[in-house]
């Protein structure tokens, strides 16, 4: 049975994130021939619309308004509800990102429907959509079905196959105008402070270089950052490193913190507490660098080097530079 599917584009710093294309792939499969639309919300984002049409959307609904320049749940709710009213999808996909995580439950409760959070797989079983998602940060998984209409889900970046390039498609772009009232603007973003980082977002990074207590200090992250830079990687940390004050909590990977699934995870000076392993052991390839050969991290690592990270990491940086030269 075909169904109409709506993908909410994930835009960060004016750029479309990859997860949008991954959601388009999932939505196209789930739609079973039904129409697939993208909701593009923001300010001065219209230039992204055409690309989305080419990327596989049958239709792109754009709500472009100054009130949407910075994310607030009220204004985004208003805009998305308008698209819902016009398109009436049976499936709504959002990214499991800062925006999607916050917006999806708003929409779900407003519509009085069920929602699957952080889905890593979507399949059709007897015509019903079944989502796989982690519980206990990936120590176990569940398969969930939503019994209400529409079905709402947030999708974890890096897990679903994006739609193959289809140059033949040219979805129509439709601009909707929405007027915002006081009740839609109950929260106001006064300022955004961009924290210093390699600029690669942890949850969407293909490669993560991560440090634990073994980095010993805030400065100890410097060699990790250098390696991350040559690899185009994001820098993460274990709870041990965060609790010790070596880095910001926003870098924490684990059951408390972020759950990540990059192609390559390089754990430096991380012993591998159960709660950390829960947050990263689904990574495709894991490299562990640790002085202690008994460290539990080696039990999940594909490659292990027993040694001092302050010797190994700079050597790696040099070796990767050589490779890429």
């Amino acid at each position: 049975m075909s169904r109409k599917a709506l993908v909410v584009a994930d835009v960060r710093h004016g750029k479309l994130r990859n997860v949008t294309l991954e959601m388009l792939g999932a939505a196209t499969k789930a739609a079973e021939g039904g129409e697939v639309a993208v909701a593009l919300l923001g300010h001065q984002v219209s230039s992204l619309a055409e690309g989305l049409g080419k990327a596989g959307a049958d239709r792109v609904y754009v709500v472009d308004a100054p009130e949407l320049e910075k994310y607030t749940p009220g204004a985004y709710r208003k805009a998305l509800m308008e698209i819902y009213r016009v398109f009436s999808p049976e499936l709504i996909l959002l990214a499991h990102s800062a925006i999607g995580k916050d917006l999806a439950p708003v929409i779900s409760q407003r519509l009085g429907v069920g929602q699957v959070s952080d889905a890593i797989a979507v399949e059709l079983t007897n015509g019903q959509l079944q989502f796989t998602r982690p519980i206990y940060a990936g120590k176990a998984f569940t398969k969930v079905v939503v019994k209400s209409n529409p079905v709402v889900a947030t999708i974890r970046p890096n897990n679903l196959a994006p739609l193959a390039e289809d140059a033949g498609k040219a979805g129509t772009v439709e601009a909707l105008s929405v007027s915002f009232e006081q009740q839609d603007l109950a929260t106001l973003v006064q300022e955004i402070i961009q924290k210093a980082s390699t600029g690669v977002d942890l949850t969407e990074a293909k490669i993560i270089v991560s440090g634990g207590r073994g980095v010993k200090s805030e400065e100890g992250f410097a060699p990790l950052r250098e390696l991350a830079e040559v690899l185009g990687a994001a820098v993460g940390a274990s709870r041990g490193a965060c609790d010790a004050g070596y880095c910001d909590y926003s870098m924490q990977i684990g059951q408390t913190g972020k759950v990540v699934t990059p192609d390559l995870y390089i754990a430096c000076g991380i012993s591998g507490a159960i709660q950390h392993l829960a947050g990263m052991s689904s990574s495709k390839v894991i490299v562990a660098i640790n002085k202690d050969p008994e460290a539990p991290i080696f039990q999940v690592a594909d490659y292990g080097i027993v040694g001092d990270l302050f010797e190994v990491v700079p050597l790696m940086t040099a070796e990767v530079k050589k490779l890429l030269a």
Binding site: G112, V113, G114, Q115, V116, Q130, I135, G138, K139, A140, F141, T142, K143, V144, V145, V146, K147, S148, S281, S282, I286, P293, F298, Q299, V300, A301, D302, Y303, G304, I305, V306
Partner: peptide, 21 residues
């Protein structure tokens, strides 16, 4: 009344230790 239902709970494939260089 609930709007979603868990139909299956399972554990991930255990990861096997790889190569220590």
């Amino acid at each position: 009344a609930r709007k979603s239902e868990v139909v299956e709970t399972f554990l991930p494939q255990p990861k096997t230790a790889g190569k220590i260089l």
